[in-house]
Design a protein around this nucleic acid. Structure first.
Lengths: 135, 135
DNA sequence: TTGCATTCAATGCACAAGCAAATAATGCAT
DNA sequence: ATGCATTATTTGCTTGTGCATTGAATGCAA
């Protein structure tokens, strides 16, 4: 791969950084009115969409693109807010099961349209998201 | 736009988050051996590639996808590290001109192959970057 | 000139993140 | 049963970020 290709790749990465940061920032700012940030929303979404309304931390970690320590604290925050509950697994007492509370479900449903709208607006100048949006 | 499209968009965004975070994380980890993080690298790159080796903060801010305050601190860090110098503009003493030092130029050249390699490796499973990479 | 709105940058503050170490529960080998 | 490596999660610590505020320099109007 040539240096020119490398530079093009660097440019593409640079652009992606910009679009991502802008989107993430907008998302955080808009979701704030629901008392959530983008990562917290993703976790609630995972819990909400799952057939099982109850997931182990490990499953959430995989989904949230966070380190396990960041996820642990995120879950603590949501728990303190009353949006989810932690329950120690009876089979393996190291593991924790996380479940949405009614309030959590309510909050997610409330925030979802906001998130979707930000995505739609942002997707306009974000080719990375366009393909999926135009399907 | 239908709810199904919205959900597809949300999925695309979710995937993008994952790829971005992974790439960013790897980049930060690998660049650490050069005493830089991804944002700092981007700023050095901007200074290095510019014809003028001297840019106002405002120009850097535009490029770095950071808030002005984050950029201010980033520049402070690089200055403390001796990679750049700040110089008050003589025409408008509010503005600061930032320039690479020799050490900064050296450091950037040293870090660049590392960054490019991470990008190449990451681009493999990151369709967002592929188009530019295959041009 | 004086006053005032504007602009550029720096700073106080709070917070979320990563890394590394600690804690705790398991499972397995002896 | 005992010791030990492994796995799941939490916690201490440091750092980079955003937002809001402040400080400083500028330009313009009266």
């Amino acid at each position: 791969m040539s240096r020119a290709d490398d530079d093009a790749l660097a440019q593409a990465w640079h652009d992606l950084m910009g679009r991502y940061q802008r989107m993430m920032c907008t998302l955080d700012r808009e979701l704030e009115q629901h008392g959530l940030n983008a990562s917290e929303f993703e976790v609630l979404q995972q819990l909400h969409s799952g057939k099982a309304c109850e997931l182990p931390m490990s499953a959430l970690a995989e989904h949230a693109h966070l380190t396990q320590s960041a996820l642990s604290r995120l879950v603590s925050r949501l728990e303190k807010d009353g949006l989810i509950t932690r329950k120690t697994c009876s089979n393996d007492r190291r593991a924790q099961f996380v479940a949405l509370t009614d309030e959590g479900r309510r909050r997610f449903r409330e925030a979802k349209p906001t998130q979707r709208q930000v995505l739609r607006e942002g997707a306009v100048d974000c080719p990375q998201l366009a393909p999926a949006a135009t399907s």
